[in-house]
Structure formats: structure tokens, C-alpha cells
Simulated assay, not measured.
Amino acid sequence: MQRPFYHYLMTERDPHKRDVVTLFANAVYLDDSFPKQSEDYHEISHYLELNGSYLEEMTTFDKAWEIYLDKDN
């Protein structure tokens, strides 16, 4: 079983790094409504499209998702 995307994303948090995935992870950490237990791309993507005002481009999520899949396989 794959770990939730949120759990992976929290490993990317860093107060000093400024790359897009790290900034995304830092913002998600502050989002209390983020679907923390989800492993589903479509569920998270839909959530971000409606609620992810902190995400400038969905390509950042796609990039983070690819890293997530690579690390968990």
C-alpha cells in the first residue's frame, strides 16, 4: 500500500529552500482542509483546482506527484 501523498509532501518541507515543490509543500502544511489521507491523483487535483489558491500552477502538483510515485515505487 502506498503512503498518502500528503505524507510524502511533508518530507519536502524546508523553511530555507525556495524551489516550487518545497514552496508547495510548505503551503499544503498550512492547509487544514487538504485531503491528508488521499493517494488518489484525481481527488487531490480536484481539491487543488477548487481550493489551492496558494498553488500558482498545477504543473507544480504534477511535478510533485511524479516524485511521489518514483519514491514510493
Rank of each mutant, 00 (worst) to 15 (best):
D14R: 03
G52W: 01
E39V: 10
D32K: 13
Q2E: 14
Y41C: 01
E57K: 15
Q37L: 13
F34L: 08
G52Y: 02
D19W: 00
N51Y: 08
D14F: 01
M10R: 09
D32M: 11
N26T: 00
K36S: 08
L48I: 09
A27I: 09
L48F: 05
Q2Y: 15
M10W: 03
A27V: 05
D14K: 01
Y29T: 00
S45F: 02
E12W: 03
D14Q: 04
A27C: 08
L30E: 15
V28F: 03
E43I: 05
D31Y: 03
Y8M: 09
R3N: 12
T22I: 05
V28L: 03
L48A: 06
L48Y: 05
Y54R: 07
R3G: 12
H46A: 15
G52H: 04
E57D: 14
V28A: 01
L23E: 14
H46M: 10
D19S: 06
G52P: 02
H16R: 09
V28S: 03
L55D: 04
E49F: 12
E56S: 12
P15Y: 07
A27F: 10
Y8K: 13
L55Y: 04
I44P: 07
S53W: 00
S33I: 02
V20S: 15
Y41S: 00
L23P: 06
P35Q: 03
T22E: 07
E56H: 05
D40P: 00
G52V: 07
Q37R: 14
R3M: 15
H42Y: 02
Q2I: 15
Y8L: 12
Y29Q: 08
R18H: 10
Y6P: 01
I44Y: 06
S33C: 04
H7Q: 09
E57T: 13
D19P: 07
L50T: 10
Y54A: 12
N51G: 03
L50H: 09
R18S: 13
V20M: 11
Q2S: 15
L23N: 12
